[in-house]
């Protein structure tokens, strides 16, 4: 019993090393993709085709190809295309690939939220003399955020699990550590414990998002 506990304790200690990278990758991706996604969604709805069409294509590629392939492309692409001086760290590559990929998904969530706002809200704002940016940031966006929160939660939870894909470009994150430990020790426990880690992270995400939803439930449209 004592032995089993100290074994599990040592596995947890080992995995915690990877956990830090996973959390950092997750946090940076959120930090980049949430605001970038808003910009992308605005570009996607632009009345200028020169903006709208390339962005539509970008979203379509991000959603239409595997994230694992995108990771490999971002990491190895510049190296193969432009030569060895164009290279950067694995972790940086992962952050770029995740940020771009998730921005595309978030953009479509924002777009759905923005386009479902009733026209009357824009018209009332216009007649009251609000500028376009005042209308967007003070009237439209606060309501959009409330409406898109459930869909965003889904995406964020997926991201927690997707960070495990970064191991294809050898980022030493939770999943990779669990996998190597598991095969080195010929034990299933590292995988189980990694699973528990992911589960706890998503439990926290769901809890935070639920709190956010509650704090916005003071009104209904």
């Amino acid at each position: 019993m004592q032995q089993a506990l100290s074994y599990i304790g040592s596995v947890i200690a080992t995995l915690s090393g990877g956990l830090g990278q996973t959390l950092l990758l997750f946090a940076l991706t959120i930090l980049i993709s949430l605001p970038l996604g808003l910009l992308v969604s605005l570009g996607r709805m632009s009345r200028f085709a020169a903006v709208r069409i390339p962005i539509k294509l970008y979203i379509s590629i991000m959603r239409g190809t595997p994230l694992m392939l995108q990771l490999l492309f971002v990491y190895f692409g510049p190296f193969y295309i432009f030569g060895p001086q164009f290279t950067y760290g694995r972790f940086t590559a992962a952050v770029i690939a995740f940020g771009l990929n998730y921005a595309a998904y978030f953009a479509e969530i924002y777009r759905g939220g923005i386009q479902s706002m009733p026209r009357g809200q824009y018209e009332a704002s216009a007649v009251l003399g609000f500028t376009r940016s005042q209308t967007f940031f003070r009237i439209i966006l606060p309501q959009v955020i409330k409406n898109i929160l459930p869909a965003t939660t889904n995406e964020v939870i997926t991201l927690v699990k997707d960070t495990s894909l970064a191991q294809v470009i050898a980022v030493v994150e939770l999943f990779r550590v669990a996998e190597t430990t598991s095969s080195a020790q010929a034990s299933v426990y590292p995988l189980i414990i990694a699973g528990v880690f992911y589960y706890i992270m998503n439990y926290v995400v769901a809890w935070i998002m639920e709190r956010a939803e509650k704090s916005l439930s003071y009104y209904s449209a």
Binding site: P118, E123, A124, I139, Q143, Y219, A221
Partner: peptide, 9 residues
């Protein structure tokens, strides 16, 4: 407006 268009938030 006919249907008010108050700001619900």
């Amino acid at each position: 407006f006919q249907s008010f268009h108050l700001f619900p938030h």
